[in-house]
Each structure stands twice: as structure tokens, then as C-alpha cells.
Design a protein around this nucleic acid. Structure first.
Lengths: 253, 253
DNA sequence: TAGTGGTCTAGACCACTAA
DNA sequence: TAGTGGTCTAGACCACTAC
């Protein structure tokens, strides 16, 4: 250092700010620590609060910070690895899966889901709500759409809704032989209901995992799961028998 | 309670705006069409430009819009499905893979990669740059880190750098027997170099896919690929022999 | 050069949390 | 109630693109 940098392409202030803050997080803060409030930070760096917020938003997107209204901004722990693709294909609700069924209703799936499901638009489907919790924190909310044709023998189930019915529907689904599954991951923003369940504000960035379950030569069910993008790292696939331990360390000093 | 509940939780303006715009996109615009400019749109909806921009940012994040400085805002086509997890494990550079090697240098990997690789911090590794193009558009940029121990017989290769050397290094890597691989997906923001290659601004949201390749009982290589989050839907896994055709349709009228 | 989106400012008020 | 982050405004200027 010593000489001033000439900035042939001037970097935006918020970008430079993000870099500075990121380095400060590495060297001067530890996980869980509370940062100064936004007005103070902005003053300290000599920028408007909106500019400072632009930098904080990026850092939050990258999982480095956690901001809570009325509380403050804290240094986030490293993202948790969440297993999504298991080695063998299994139906939702199979023994030992990470999901907790909370409700089951009959509803018309969104057209995008109906397209994948291959059902007629406007046709109802069993809709199971499930949530996933890791280390005491909610990480994902799921809607599972099951057309009536996939669970023909539902007359024996008396619970009209709720977790009990959800479990019963899943049990019924498992009578089919699962032939395969297919997943897609994309970026989205949390709808109001999912946001509430994930303890975030509406519009928060989420990773949307859409899973198609194949049985009897067709799509027997579709799951749309939204994971908190700030706290989650989705993990897939086999490890070839080699043990995996993601680095628990990130700090330097 | 007999009275109607009028906004017990008032919706933010930008959120409502986003909903209105989203519906307008479905019904009144077609893919590629140019929207009115931000100043006009803001005036039309009676909000400040910053508020309007907040709504547009969300829609862009969801892949509904595409904004280009100096040009305008256009309606984005549906996201392209990009296959990431193939059914069988293969080494990078195997026949028929979707990547184009562009360069190969020797560099010190970032500490986060070194941790996964199990190498000493500061130790150099062969670093192969590759890019992935779909439908004429760049969708991903990758850095592949290969420790020297994974490619012992590199003396016969004369090209000091460039695409030729990259191909040679990959060819050498394929002499090892691949025992498995493991992937993780998380949200990130594009570094300056990746952003340039992806034709986006720095900080643009990307899906970061980290792949560990296992051979000889250890991690033989690590790939960090960044996919454009606005245009890509990452697809994984087997389809159970059932043909997959994602809905090409989204518009109504 | 005209028009676009990108950055930045200096305020204001609101919703939420915890003491 | 005091303090936090979230929303919103009405400007200004800059960087880039295409004509």
C-alpha cells in the first residue's frame, strides 16, 4: 500500500464497502457478535445509510450477516449443509426423513405444478404441508402435491385434515413403487406464508427445490420445497464412501 | 370481530407493486418485450423511482425480468434447465460434457477450497478455467482446482498455459479412477471476473455449485461453478426412465 | 447525443423488539 | 419507551448503449 490507487474503473462505493466489511468480519468479529447500528456504521464510513444498506444486503445474501428488525445486525454462523438428494430414491414420509408433516388439505395446485403433474388445470390435489428443522432452526417449508389418482384408497382415513391426515396420506402414497425422481433448484423469493414459517420477511431469497416423483410410468407427486438461502447450503449425491467434513473454520485471527 | 380486517399488517408498497407488475407481465406482455422506463413506470404507479426499483429487483431475482443498463428492461424468457448432476459420476472433461476449457494456470486456491481439498494453505494447485454456454448464452463459469498430487505425470505437457494445457491437465486427471462425487449448492454473488464472463454486473446473484471429486480415497479435485441465478434452473438426478418436458408455457392470453 | 438503468444522498416515518 | 432495521421520498449525477 502506500500509493493511492488511481481507479481507472471506479468501483461503486457499496462494493468497496462490502469488501472492507467482509474483511473486518473475518478479522475483528466472531460469530454472533452484534455490529454497530446502520446509522453509526454509515457515519463511520462517510456514506448515506442507503449505500451502507446496499453493502449489508449483499453480505446477508452471502450468508455472512443476519439482520433482525428491532434487534440489530449480527455475524452469521457458517451455512448449514442440508442433505437434499439422498443416495437412494425414497418417498416423502419414509422412515427417518427430515421432514415434519403439519397439515393436509385438498386444494388446486398452481398452474406451474399442474403442468408438471400432468393434471388438468383447476383439478384439486391432496396438498401436504411439511416443515424441516435443523439445529433448532427452521430451514425449509414444503408443499407436496399428490393427485387423487396416486392415493386411491383414501376412504379408510377419517381425519379430515391436520398432521394426522398428512401422515395417513403419505403412508398411502408409499404403497406405490417409486421408479425414480428428478430435482431442480432455482432462486426464488419467499411467499408470505413460507416467509412466516421460515422466520423471515416476505421476499427473502430462497432456494426452491422442485422434486418430481415417478411411479407407474407417470409423475405421481410433486414437491415444492423452499429453503432459506441465507442459512442453507444444499448438498447432493454420494460421497463415494469417503467421509465428508466441511470446514467448520472460517475465521483467521 | 364483525368488522372486516383492513390490512392488520399493511403490505409494503413495493411488494404490492411487484404483484401488480407480475400479473401484468403474465397477461399483457410477451417474452422479450420492452417495458416502459423506470421513471415513467414510477410516475404511472405514483411511487418514487427507488420504490419501483425495489419491485423490479425482486422480479429480476425471480427470473421474470432482465435489465440492461443503457438499453432498458425486458420480459425474460422462462429459465433454462441446466443439467448438473448426471446419472453416473464422471470426471470433468469427459467426452460430451457441456464445458469449454479456456485456460489453465498454477495458483493458490482460496482457503475455503484448500480446506476441502485437504491441502496446506498457501500450496499451489492447477487451476482450470472453464465456461458453459447454453442456447448461445453464457450460463456458468467454473474454476477447477487440481492439486499436483492428482496429476503426477505432467512433465510431458509442454503448453505453459491456455486452453491446450487445460485439456491436457484434464486428460491426465482422467487416468485416476473416480470413486464418487459430492455436490453442494448455495447462493452467492458474482465476483468481478465471473460477472464479466457471465455478462452481468459484479454482485449479481449466482448459484454456486461446489463439487468434490473423490479418487484414491481422498479428494482429488474440487470444482467451484457459478451459475447465473436469474436465467438458470439447475436440474439433478435420474428421471426413472420417464421423459421430462418442463412446461414451455407461462403466458395466459 | 439522448435515453436507459446504476449509484448515491439526506432526509422522513413506520414496524418491531427488548428493557 | 428507546433503539433497531424496513420502507419511502425526491431529488442528483454517473456509466453505458444505440442512434
Amino acid at each position: 500500500m502506500g500509493t493511492t490507487q488511481l481507479e481507472s474503473v471506479p468501483e461503486p462505493k457499496y462494493w468497496h464497502l462490502k469488501t472492507v466489511l467482509s474483511e473486518a468480519l473475518d478479522s475483528e468479529f466472531s460469530v454472533g457478535e452484534i455490529l454497530p447500528n446502520e446509522r453509526d456504521l454509515a457515519a463511520r464510513f462517510g456514506v448515506a445509510r442507503a449505500t451502507l444498506r446496499q453493502a449489508l444486503e449483499q453480505l446477508e445474501l452471502e450468508g455472512r450477516l443476519q439482520r433482525r428488525r428491532g434487534v440489530g445486525t449480527t455475524v452469521a454462523p457458517p451455512r448449514v449443509g442440508v442433505a437434499v438428494g439422498s443416495e437412494q430414491d425414497v418417498w416423502p414420509g419414509a422412515a427417518g426423513d427430515a421432514w415434519q408433516p403439519t397439515d393436509c388439505t385438498v386444494a388446486v395446485p398452481p398452474t406451474s405444478v399442474a403442468d408438471i403433474l400432468g393434471t388438468v388445470h383447476g383439478e384439486q390435489a391432496h396438498t401436504v404441508r411439511r416443515s424441516r428443522v435443523t439445529h433448532g432452526q427452521p430451514v425449509a417449508a414444503e408443499l407436496l402435491y399428490i393427485p387423487a389418482s396416486s392415493v386411491p384408497d383414501l376412504s379408510a382415513i377419517d381425519a379430515p385434515s391436520g398432521a394426522a391426515r398428512a401422515r395417513a396420506v403419505l403412508r398411502e402414497l408409499q404403497r406405490l413403487e417409486l421408479e425414480g425422481q428428478h430435482r431442480a433448484v432455482e432462486l426464488g423469493s419467499a411467499r408470505a406464508d413460507d416467509a412466516k414459517e421460515l422466520d423471515r420477511l416476505p421476499g427473502a431469497p430462497v432456494l426452491v427445490v422442485t422434486t418430481r416423483f415417478f411411479a407407474e410410468g407417470r409423475t405421481a407427486a410433486v414437491s415444492v420445497a423452499t429453503y432459506r438461502a441465507d442459512t442453507c447450503r444444499l448438498t447432493f449425491g454420494d460421497s463415494g464412501g469417503v467421509e465428508i467434513h466441511h470446514d467448520p473454520e472460517r475465521r483467521a485471527s
